[in-house]
């Protein structure tokens, strides 16, 4: 198992190096650069050349990449087009976004398991069909639409929750928990619905399986059937779905954050892309890339640990889906 984790970590690290190279060189090939973005309308050719030289943009792209990657290893994320250090801009925002994603994941696990079982144990029943329709609806609706509807109902209509996540300076989102409710709910409706659909399908298939039918015909109480025959078959799938959802939530909070003005990375990412603030965009891509790699690694290891045949087998684990 240690060898597996070490191997996966090495692969992850190699992937990140590749990603960083792609991001850096790819961005370099786009029209416009940091000098253009900085100078805007005052970008006369002479001034552009001067600014490029001052920012070191006149050096070959691979030399600049080595510089940037070296800084990255030392924890120096570079300087934004606005002149502010990137680390000062990202600061607590990465943690705030992680909090949103983490809370959503923690709530999503029990909710999706319970609802998925509740529907899946009686495939084709009225409640099963109801869950199927509702979850399909929330999976299909973009999260900012869901978020907008939540604001309309709970903030503007009922007035029970804040419409925007205003966090006073010096405080964190946890100091104002009400500000977290609607953003988490919006994310939960989308991602839990997806997990519910996956778990429900697995449970529905499992309850029709011969070994479950055998246990039931042997007169085992329904509770024991679920505990001994259904759950062991469902958990590996569920675990994988949860971990992949967590991976999708890395960076998947951006749109919802914007709707609520939540102080996470969403606003930073959107602005960096819109204004061409490449150092900030590059740093964010690396942070998000590392997050996804770690989440996928956890998914891989988790599936192995929860599947006896994989835990003992020598052959590699199946590739994660989605």
């Amino acid at each position: 198992m240690i060898r597996l984790v070490a191997g996966r970590l090495a692969t992850g690290a190699a992937l990140l190096v590749l990603l960083s190279l792609l991001v850096f060189v790819g961005v370099d090939l786009l029209p416009g650069d940091a000098a253009n973005a900085r100078l805007g309308a005052s970008a006369t050719p002479a001034r552009l050349a001067e600014t490029r030289q001052r920012l070191g943009l006149d050096r070959p792209v691979l030399v600049r990449y080595a510089d940037w990657a070296g800084g990255l290893l030392r924890g120096d994320l570079g300087t934004s087009v606005s002149g502010t250090p990137v680390s000062a801009i990202l600061g607590g925002r990465v943690a705030n976004s992680a909090l949103l994603a983490g809370l959503t994941t923690i709530l999503l696990v029990p909710i999706s398991l319970v609802v998925g079982m509740w529907a899946g144990l009686r495939p084709g029943s009225r409640r099963d069909r109801g869950v199927a329709v509702a979850s399909l609806l929330f999976v299909a609706a973009p999260e900012f639409v869901t978020a907008g509807l939540l604001v309309l109902v709970f903030a503007i209509g009922l007035g029970v929750l804040p419409a925007v996540s205003l966090i006073p300076p010096g405080a964190g989102p946890l100091d104002r928990p009400a500000a977290l409710v609607l953003p988490v709910l919006a994310l939960l409706l989308l991602h839990a619905s997806y997990a519910v659909r996956m778990i429900r399908a697995t449970i529905a298939a499992t309850v029709r399986a011969p070994h479950v039918e055998f246990a039931r015909l042997n007169g085992e109480p329904p509770r024991d059937v679920v505990r001994h025959a259904v759950l062991p078959a469902v958990l590996p799938v569920a675990l994988q779905v949860w971990l992949l959802t967590a991976a999708a939530l890395v960076g998947g909070t951006v749109l919802v954050e914007r709707v609520f003005g939540y102080p996470g990375i969403g606003e930073v990412l959107v602005t960096a892309v819109r204004t061409g603030d490449l150092p900030v965009a590059q740093a964010l891509v690396m942070v998000l890339g590392a997050g996804v790699v770690v989440a996928l690694l956890a998914a891989d290891v988790g599936v192995r640990l929860s599947t006896p045949t994989l835990r003992t087998a020598e052959q590699p684990a199946p590739v994660a889906f989605r």
């Binding site: 907008g148 804040p162 419409a163 925007v164 003005g261």
Partner: peptide
């Protein structure tokens, strides 16, 4: 002075009294 990027969020902040 509150910074809110999204125009709807700005309007919502006033409409809900924040």
């Amino acid at each position: 002075v509150i910074s809110l990027d999204d125009p709807s969020a700005r309007v919502n902040a006033v409409r809900t009294g924040e």
